[in-house]
Amino acid sequence: MITYRLIQITYLFLLEIIFASTNLVAQTNNDIFSTQNRIAFGNNLFCERDYLRAIDEFKFVLKSEWNDSLQFKIATSYLRMSDYNQAYKEYQKICKNSLLYEQSQYEKLRSLFKSENYSFLNNQVDKQILNSKLNSLQILRLRNSALLLEDKTLPEKNDFVSVYVENDKTKMSEFYNWKSKPPFKSPTTAAIMSALIPGSGKIYADEIGDGITAFLLTGLFTYLSVDKFNNNHNASGWLYASLAAFFYAGNVYGSATAVQNYNAGIKFNFDSKVKLFINDRNQFLPTPKHLCN
């Protein structure tokens, strides 16, 4: 009887302990607004790419306790929503003693590149190179690539290309050659050409149809003007002469602007190709891992 009583008491005691602990678990896990659950829900939203809501959840948690991985995810959410300036500011909040500090430095550079703030990126790379923790080769790759998109003088070709991996060297060398000697055409040459032979400046600017039309019209009006003057039709002569002069002047000016457009076009194509190449390689920087595990 005593043994039975002892078993009963022990069972009730154990039950009490279980109840107390489950009650505690219930308080943490069942309260869907608990810190732990907010983080879990925020992570789910983040992985579902609902970044705006994920930011809200993470920020709410950060009000009560600091968590560098949440801060990193907030910054990454902004980056993925293309709010690069805000992403940069958020990455900046990660302290030096955090395990994510190194990656956040990379992400800051990525944000700067994406926001096309190349001059600031350049300054930051110089600062980061002094920081031995970061892989200087990777950030140099990004810096050199950004130089291709800036109006700055490039370093020596060997120095420029040497930082890239073997597979990328040929392409970067091509980009380097283009940037150091861009196949731009001269607007002055175009204007002079059109002044000498109407329409030739347009043909030089790759606008062949316009060039031929300008040549024919200017020639025709000039011929008509001369013909009218020769036949003593002075009024018509002046009319055609002024038309010829108008077409001639317009063609000279138009040739110069056509070359400017041509140059802007090939520069735009080059920039697009470079950006595509760099983005294809994730800006040459390591990508954050395990964000959705």
Binding site: I7, Q8, Y11, L15, T22
Partner: peptide, 15 residues
Amino acid sequence: MKKAFYISIILFSWI
């Protein structure tokens, strides 16, 4: 013992 069993069922279902 029976009593304890009922109590435990009530507690778990409460959670």
